[in-house]
Amino acid sequence: MAKTVEGLYYSESHEWVKVEGNVAIVGITDFAQHAMGDLSYVDMPEVDDEIEAGEEFGAVESVKAASDLFSPVSGTVVEINEALEDAPELLNEDAFENWIIKVEMSDPSQLEALMDAAAYEAMCANE
């Protein structure tokens, strides 16, 4: 059973969001890394890129699959997790400890559309 972490926001496309002030820290869930298998690459945007809620901002790849990453919020990318460039397996090791991007949110109210841990667990149980 994939784990979840309380206090985070979750999207239907299996991203999690941790909020620190006006910055959203975005990663993929344990469920998602498990479904992908051994990750071989994380395609990330560049700092200062503008991203829109619901639109793709990158992708994760395993040997024979690729899955797009969708941003749960709109805003400006302020940091990317450069450690993932050389070690995508960090996401397999701990998907919640290893974030992918940090976004300065332009509309924090978008968080309200996301799920809490319990709702997300219920969604995954149905997949």
Binding site: E61, S62, V63, K64, A65
Partner: peptide
Amino acid sequence: TLQAREQHIR
């Protein structure tokens, strides 16, 4: 290798 770039996956 690096097949996840290719048409049969992407």
